[in-house]
Amino acid sequence: MRDTLGRAPVLLVVPAALATLLLTVPLVAMVAATDWPGLPEQLRSEPLREALWLSAMTSTVAVAVCLLLGLPLAWVLARVEFRGRGVLRAVVTVPLVLPPVVAGIALRTAFGRTGFLGEPLLDATGFGFPFTTWGVVLAHVFVCMPFVVISIEGALRSTDPEYDAAAATLGATRWTTFRRVTVPLALPGIVAGAVLGWARSLGEFGATITFNGNYPGTTQTMPTLIYVTRQSDQDAALALSLVMLLVSVAVLLALRDRWLGTRLAGG
């Protein structure tokens, strides 16, 4: 370490090395323990294909919903001054720190078949969220929205509001300004927020299983499949986990190349 400020102190380097080990050893162990010859067989299983498809699909729809609703919310938090803005931001942040199981219970209380909103909805339309694929999407949206909103709000805040002022003097309405100036300028941050939300959604387990149970083909996502498979077949669970690891690494690479890199470089 050739640093003009001197050598990095042992008291910091050793914990840093331990942290690195703690983070990498389990993943390396997982890769090492995988039954590679049997892997193709494991990956051809019907439940895996179903769960992987369901996970990818529900996460994508959930992120789309998060953007559709979360981008406006982030804009309101970043650009509109009103009383209670701090309170609103706090409310948005709560699900971020809430244990996912608790999120599932909360969703049941609201959207369950006898829930506060679920019952009237069921009576009126015959549709109920729990134990359906839409219920999975709902759980994912609830858990991911804070990630998306908070990261996009940060991106909006870091773009100069003077550009909004310039657009106003040119005759643009706030909606035009939002569409043609604010969003394009914050786009890298918005995409990063969406990818982050997608990754969080893909791994969602607690809220989903609490709210929707575990039905193959309708509510069984990859994390729930891994969880139930592990109880009967360790090797299969390991193979499934490897798939998730690969997806995660792929997301990370996509993030780094497309957005994190430019964001870090561009400030």
């Binding site: 100069d160 003077e162 002022a165 310039a166 106003a168 003097t169 040119l170 005759g171 643009a172 309405t173």
Partner: peptide
């Protein structure tokens, strides 16, 4: 602002 018909050249262009 948008209805004033006022053109503004900002310091630093923007």
């Amino acid at each position: 602002a948008r209805e004033r018909g006022v053109g503004l050249v900002f310091q630093g262009q923007l």
